[in-house]
């Protein structure tokens, strides 16, 4: 009789709501897949035409970048090299400092000090990248200019850059990857079981020997992950180095004004048109390919370290 109070009358609308909820959640779950697929698609669609128009070899291995000249030339070899060399150098400087700071936080520092330093490092990660660029421009560049004047005094072949050169950019990048390297290495070091340390200490090793011969090797996969993530961050950084690295495309020598893959896009996109613009998208595509390589190697690394952890847990084959 009174159907509105029976459970049956509600059943229909309720199961409708339930089904709608499931559909909505599934859709938003797959949104990330859609996003990555369309980003890949659009990067390829907008990056590939220029490759064929200019010629794959001419564009990737040409060393003359003169997109606005009367007889334009679109070689991005030096731009690619700059990104590779710059990232490599930034890793070379940033990783030792980062890993040692992580060791300090995880192993050496008294707890109270570590609890002050750790949030400070996290804060370093939160500082907007343009601010790093601003400070690099106003602190590093004048210093570099002084150095440049001293080194190249009387040189007639050197093109003076006012301090906006590869070294400045590398230093800014090194600072920017520090927080990433420190945070991830520290958690990797903390995850090393304490009986590893106790065993090493009990055998008579000093604390430093324990850290460098037991703890760090045991945390190896985590530290490698940190380095790979740092590489990704360094190669993709644009705004911080766009003004610091100079404004001409050159071979990546320390005191040359250089252009990275990212800074080429940032500084030329606004006034580019036609084929020039398409080539900038090709540069974006090259950067995208680099990032995808880094990402896939990262996933593989993480998988490997998971397998290794399982092995350690099962106690089957612990690597020395």
């Amino acid at each position: 009789m009174n159907e509105s109070f029976s459970i049956f009358s509600h059943h229909g609308s309720k199961s409708g709501v339930e089904r709608a909820a499931e559909v909505i959640f599934t859709a938003s779950g797959f949104f990330a897949v859609l996003a990555v697929a369309s980003i890949t698609l659009y990067m390829v669609i907008s990056g590939v035409p220029a490759l064929f128009q200019v010629g794959i070899l001419d564009i990737l291995f040409g060393s003359v970048w003169a997109p606005t000249a009367a007889d334009p030339s679109y070689g991005i070899l030096y731009v690619i090299l700059t990104s590779i060399v710059g990232t490599f150098l930034a890793i070379l400087i940033g990783v030792p400092i980062g890993v040692l700071t992580a060791v300090f936080l995880a192993e050496v520092a008294p707890k109270k000090l570590a609890n002050v330093v750790r949030p400070a490092v996290e804060l370093l990660a939160g500082i907007p990248s343009v601010i790093y660029g601003l400070l690099g421009l106003l602190i590093l560049n004048p210093l570099m200019y002084k150095l440049e004047l001293k080194i190249f005094e009387g040189s007639t072949t050197h093109q003076f850059t006012g301090g906006a050169n590869l070294i400045s950019a590398v230093l800014v990048l090194a600072v920017m990857i520090l927080p990433t390297v420190i945070n991830i290495s520290e958690s990797a070091l903390r995850a090393v079981p304490s009986h590893f340390r106790s065993a090493s200490l009990a055998l008579g090793a000093t604390q430093i020997q324990t850290i460098f011969k037991v703890t760090i090797p045991a945390a190896k996969s985590g530290i490698v992950t940190a380095i790979v993530l740092g590489t990704g961050r360094a190669i993709g950084e644009a705004m911080a180095i766009s003004l610091v690295s100079g404004s001409a495309v050159n071979f990546p020598l320390p005191f040359n004004s250089v252009r990275f893959l990212t800074t080429a896009i940032v500084s030329e996109m606004s006034y580019s048109s036609g084929l020039h613009r398409q080539v900038l998208f090709t540069i974006g595509l090259v950067l995208f390919v680099f990032i995808m390589l880094i990402n896939t190697s990262l996933t593989r690394l993480l998988k490997q370290s998971n397998v290794e952890e399982d092995k350690q847990v099962k106690g089957k084959g612990k690597k020395s």
Binding site: L229, G232, I235, G236, A238, T262, V266, G284, I291
Partner: peptide, 9 residues
């Protein structure tokens, strides 16, 4: 992947 893509892309 999405979290690894740089902002310029």
């Amino acid at each position: 992947t999405l979290s690894g893509i740089p902002s310029i892309i």
